[in-house]
Design a protein around this nucleic acid. Structure first.
Length: 425
DNA sequence: TCTGGGGTCCTAGGACCC
DNA sequence: TCTGGGGTCCTAGGACCC
């Protein structure tokens, strides 16, 4: 039996999340903004119809959104992360195997499910929506790339009612002809532009190209896309999340920042977040990279961008060590007289906590090993009582650099004091 | 005044090794 | 006029994804 991959994708995920606890917003246009209320990153179907573009800066569309009565939200990742986990739990309960691909998407291998993949998917879709409040679309195909393509068809064609099985279609080529080449998973804007110039306009045109040509012009990743469109699986199905090879924590500031002290606080904060992610995957880091940048959109102002790599003598996940290293790097690249927009911390050279190498002389002292119980206790407190219940003084208390989130909804599902209140009577 | 954040993979070229 | 052959590792840049 040929493999039946499903791609389950939440519809307009962040906008749908905002609606779960605000049912009066159903049928109304909803928009979610990026951090700092910078630009539009999610739109409900109604907002898309109004012509609100993905990635449009908020300050450019604000008036229009207000005039049209669009409900606008700052991004609320506490809410989205939690609702995502609920959706994934439902999928995990019913599907033989699930690969979580992103916050709002998962692949499932539905080969051999009783009653056929399409009927199974219809029930799954109804269950996810009933149990979580999140509407999903499901595409089915013999490879991941074709499942993606089928999913897009399911979303755009109302008569599919959210589920489309490419393998069961009487004319699968028609769907490929309907799909613009730039919409194919793995073909980005650069390649799409180049392909269109050569007259390759649809997924079907692309599928008919010679494999040698694709290999030469688009490397093996392009070749994989080609073969997947032909029904030959090239992309593995992974049931567990792979460990990250780099971990980044980086943010734009709420206001331009000029003082080193503020950058030091922000850097400590980002190093702390990165260290938390590092410990969650049970890894240690061998390198820290700090980067710093001014606002590239301000053409008249002096620009400065720099990054400092800081190798660690002993790989560690000990937050104070990572803060120290990051701040040392920051001091090296900081230049007075610029208005900074953003800084960030990247951890690389990651190894498993158990398999790590120790320095020959164990110098400096192996803080990670010695202090592991301390960091575990800090993580446990913050996990139980909420982020930053225990924090490092180096990241400060009320820095002006913190993000703006003026339109944030409550953390309905992850903070006791923000639970929804229902009045009866 | 205001333009997100976090990842992966591939390739070419340089440094370095024997 | 002439300057081997064969490797590995690292980094930067480009392309892609959500």
């Amino acid at each position: 039996m040929p493999a039946a991959y499903a791609l389950i994708d939440c519809n307009n995920f962040y906008a749908s999340c905002e609606r779960v606890f605000r049912p009066e917003l159903r049928g109304r246009p909803v928009v979610v903004l990026s951090n700092n209320d910078g630009c539009v990153i999610a739109r409900s179907a109604e907002a898309k119809e109004l012509g609100v573009g993905m990635g449009t800066p908020y300050f450019k569309c604000r008036t229009m959104l207000e005039r049209q009565g669009v409900a606008v939200f700052s991004s609320n990742y506490a809410l989205y992360g939690d609702l995502s986990a609920r959706v994934m739990r439902v999928l995990g309960r019913f599907c033989p195997s699930v690969e979580i691909y992103s916050i709002d998407e998962a692949f499932a291998d539905l080969s051999g499910v009783p009653g056929g993949a399409a009927a199974f998917s219809r029930r799954l879709r109804a269950t996810v929506e009933a149990w979580t409040g999140i509407p999903v679309s499901i595409g089915l195909g013999p490879t991941k790339t074709l499942a993606k393509l089928a999913n897009r068809f399911a979303k755009k064609q109302p008569r599919c009612r959210g589920v489309f099985d490419l393998a069961a279609s009487p004319d699968p080529d028609r769907v490929l002809r309907w799909t613009d080449v730039g919409e194919v998973w793995g073909i980005g804007p650069r390649h799409a532009k180049r392909l269109r110039k050569l007259g390759v306009r649809t997924a079907l045109d692309f599928r008919e190209l010679k494999r040698e040509w694709v290999r030469r012009k688009m490397t093996v990743t392009g070749l994989h896309t080609l073969l997947e469109l032909r029904g030959l699986p090239c992309l593995d199905f992974a049931s567990g999340p792979p460990s990250k090879k780099t971990i980044v924590s980086s943010r734009s500031f709420g206001h331009p920042v000029t003082r080193l002290e503020d950058l030091m606080e922000a850097t400590a904060q980002y190093a702390t977040r990165a260290a938390e992610k590092l410990r969650r995957q049970r890894s240690v880091a061998g390198h820290v990279l700090v980067h710093l940048e001014t606002n590239r959109f301000r053409l008249g102002e002096p620009q400065y961008n720099n990054a400092a790599p800081v190798p660690l003598a002993v790989a560690t996940a000990h937050t104070p060590d990572l803060i120290r290293a990051a701040q040392a790097g920051l001091k090296r690249i900081f230049r007075d007289g610029y208005a900074y927009k953003k800084c960030g911390v990247m951890l690389s050279g990651l190894e498993s906590e158990d398999g790590r190498w120790l320095s020959l002389l164990d110098l400096p002292p192996d803080a990670h090993g010695r202090h592991a119980p301390l960091m575990r206790a800090v993580d446990a407190c913050n996990s139980r009582w909420g982020r930053d219940t225990v924090k490092f003084a180096a990241s400060g208390l009320n820095g002006t650099w913190r993000m703006r989130r003026e339109l944030c909804s409550p953390r309905y599902t992850t903070a006791w004091e923000e639970l929804l209140t229902v009045k009866a009577g």
